[in-house]
Design a protein around this nucleic acid. Structure first.
Lengths: 125, 125
DNA sequence: CTCTATATTGGTCATTATACCAAATATCAA
DNA sequence: TTGATATTTGGTATAATGACCAATATAGAG
């Protein structure tokens, strides 16, 4: 793969990577409802404030969130609302994956259009 | 955060994580045009075949791709076309991020609606 | 059956991510 | 100025990723 093309995918994957953590997905979801300070998000997530602050810096760096200083606190908000469009797809896929996994406990599939049953959810494949 | 809610975000983030790698984003993009065997994708990416095979297993595990055995080769195809909807958003964000970075070299921003300029793209902040 | 082409899996190693604590910074109140 | 609150950054230990090579499995050709 040529370098410029690789760079393109590199830049895109950085954004996907920023969304590839449960706490960060939660933050995006929460900020889509309303802006929040670090302390509020920390409270909701239940991790150390430094951990949450670092998650926010990753989201900032990816351009997904924005912040504004308000007195002693930082008020974060969603900067790229288009990522919310991902959520519907994610939910659908999670649902389908669960069905696939259940199905694979009975049928070992193997073709297009039916479960591949190659996952490790059975503990043995 | 309660356990069941955490599990929800965990399942979603697994899918985002699967898309958080340049080669895997490339694979999704390529498979959106046409199905491909591992050997073709390996050729295009230019990595070891075992590396590409592992990338494909991650995409399979996330339910993003499907495969079918065809003689001695495995024919992969896109199983979750909805992820293609992410690409437009990614491209827009990459463009905006580049602009933000350029702008930050001149203006140090700091408020909503303007660049945050907190990234490390300058090498010193 | 044997050889070749295609894929996957296991092993190893280097790199990156993540979590927490401690320390530093900044703002506001007293 | 001092103290309290909010946030970020540095340090460190641990876990997860990612890349390659080697070994294994499978299908088709001869």
């Amino acid at each position: 793969m040529k370098q410029d093309i690789r760079d393109r995918y590199e830049a895109r994957s950085k954004i996907m990577k920023a969304l590839g953590h449960p706490s960060r997905l939660f933050i995006v979801d929460e900020l889509s409802r309303q802006g929040r300070c670090v302390c509020e998000l920390t409270e909701m997530i239940g991790a150390d404030v430094s951990t949450v602050s670092k998650h926010l810096s990753i989201l900032r760096e990816a351009g997904i969130v924005d912040y504004e200083k308000r007195g002693t606190q930082m008020h974060y908000r969603l900067a790229a609302p288009c990522v919310l469009g991902f959520f519907r797809c994610l939910e659908d896929m999670v649902r389908i994956n669960v069905q696939r996994q259940l199905h694979c406990l009975q049928d070992d599939g193997g073709q297009y259009g039916s479960p591949q049953c190659t996952g490790d959810f059975t503990g043995h494949n």
